[in-house]
């Protein structure tokens, strides 16, 4: 077992690479990796690879995360039964398998490791998924009439009354006034 390096000269190189390294660390933590030592080592490795690929026009942070993505993709391609390293779907499936298998918590030391992986880890990564719904077999579900002729007639009445909001208000007022008149009118 190698000792965890106290600091990485690669990460110290300049501020942009330092920011890139910090981002990679965060991304690893977002995968629920808990060991600071392991995170630091993985970060150093990824930044190292990214720096080796550095181009003048490339932003270190973008390059670092691109490398991170590529490393994860390569790892998933080895573990999962199908998919190419550059395949976006593979990375999605891989992350789903990591989440469902709780890999970061159960096998933290083997995260992104390629060889000598526990058999159970490999099985979990290969077999764990959210499952596919049964094959879609479309059925025709067509509605049939439910309202009768009286209902159709009432539709006309409703539409008519809505077209005449003024008439509606006047009718309502007349009903209320009639009731009041009947209640308060003389001879009662």
């Amino acid at each position: 077992m190698k000792p965890v390096p106290a600091f990485s000269p690669v990460i110290e190189a300049d501020a942009r690479w330092a920011a890139a390294a910090e981002r990679v660390e965060r991304y690893l933590r977002a995968h629920r990796l808990a060991s600071p030592g392991q995170i630091a080592r993985l970060t150093a490795d990824i930044i190292g690879i990214a720096r080796a690929r550095a181009r003048a026009d490339a932003e270190p942070m973008a390059l670092a995360m691109e490398t991170m993505d590529a490393c994860l993709g390569a790892w998933f391609a080895r573990l999962l039964p199908t998919g190419e390293p550059g395949d976006a779907d593979l990375r999605v499936r891989g992350r789903v398998a990591l989440a469902l298998g709780d890999v970061a918590a159960r096998w933290p030391g083997y995260f992104m490791r390629e060889s000598a992986l526990p058999v159970e880890l490999v099985r979990v990564m290969r077999e764990t998924d959210l499952g596919r719904a049964p094959e879609i077999k479309f059925s025709n579900m067509a509605p049939r009439p439910a309202a009768g002729p009286v209902a159709a007639g009432s539709r006309l009445r409703w539409q008519w009354s809505y077209r005449w909001p003024f008439l509606r208000i006047v009718t309502g007022l007349m009903v209320v006034l009639s009731l009041l008149g009947a209640a308060l009118g003389p001879g009662r």
Partner: peptide, 22 residues
């Protein structure tokens, strides 16, 4: 706000996947 590492250290293993890419 990403999850903070929990206390405790795990056995460190050399990340040969990354090394392979180097």
């Amino acid at each position: 706000r990403q999850p903070e590492p929990e206390a405790g250290e795990v056995e460190f293993t050399v990340n040969d996947a990354v090394l392979a890419m180097k």
